[in-house]
């Protein structure tokens, strides 16, 4: 472990968690003006705002938040490949939310229980993320146990993103948690929700050669570069611009 006390900041871990929050926040923000109903427009924007707040705290632990968000190249980002996946249809967004918010809630709960440098943020954010997880869970139930079409699309979405879920449980330098235990609790939780939603648990690999996930090492999927170009272009075109 690089750090056990708040005096030292494990930069690698701060970037990993901060980038997860930043990138997913941006993806959810893309729904603004496009969400299926007004209530979801507001819900997704609010979840994005919570994540952006977390990202600001985490990236500020690692350096200057604006420089880190707007001036790093793709290979310097340490987020999971899961969070950079395009929004797809609403079912894909909900599947991504279910997988990620379940992970984030378990992770923050574990960090909040410790006394490491992430404990203060985790203790605060875990309460917000509980609402994100609940939102994703309710939609998973409604879509999975809904019409034939919604069931089929939710099933496809859960399967399409399954290969990205193993990466969440790779050890991260400076993150004082038990990845194996976290993975077990995550699988229990997701299995239970999918079961209630009458959805099959996806069968493909989550780790190893045929899975995805090297975002923590700076390797990203093809849509991430385009997302980053959009996110960074204003700042890069007008350095130092203010409102």
């Amino acid at each position: 472990m690089t750090a056990t006390g708040p005096a030292t900041v494990p930069v690698t871990a701060a970037l990993a968690l901060g980038d997860d929050a930043l990138v997913l926040s941006h993806r959810l923000g893309e729904w603004a003006g496009h969400a299926p109903v007004l209530e979801e427009e507001v819900a997704l924007a609010n979840i994005a705002l919570d994540l952006l707040g977390q990202a600001r705290v985490l990236l500020s632990m690692a350096g200057d938040e604006d420089e880190l968000a707007y001036l790093r190249e793709e290979r310097a980002f340490r987020n999971l490949q899961l969070v950079e996946q395009p929004n797809g249809d609403f079912a894909h967004t909900i599947a991504r939310q279910l997988y990620f918010s379940t992970y984030q809630e378990l992770l923050y709960a574990e960090l909040a229980a410790g006394d490491g440098p992430f404990a203060p943020l985790a203790a605060k954010a875990v309460k917000e993320v509980a609402y994100h997880r609940d939102h994703a869970e309710q939609w998973t139930l409604r879509l999975g146990d809904g019409t034939e079409t919604s069931h089929e699309r939710m099933r496809r979405a859960c399967e399409a993103l399954w290969k990205f879920t193993g990466e969440m449980f790779q050890p991260v330098e400076g993150l004082d948690i038990d990845p194996t235990g976290l993975d077990r609790r995550w699988q229990e939780s997701v299995t239970e929700v999918l079961g209630r939603a009458t959805l099959p648990l996806p069968e493909g690999p989550r780790t190893g050669a045929w899975s995805a996930g090297a975002g923590r090492q700076g390797l990203h999927t093809e849509p991430f570069g385009r997302m980053l170009a959009e996110m960074q272009h204003l700042h890069r075109s007008h350095p130092g611009a203010t409102w």
Binding site: V37, E39, A130, D134, Q138, W139, L141, R142, R196
Partner: peptide
């Protein structure tokens, strides 16, 4: 204790009612 309030996704203008039991609270 904290944790989300267990609520069912009740009827909204786009849906007639919950199809499943209420969500479990985490705490």
């Amino acid at each position: 204790a904290f944790g989300p309030v267990p609520l069912s996704l009740g009827p909204t203008r786009t849906d007639d009612g919950p199809t499943t039991e209420p969500s479990r609270p985490i705490e």
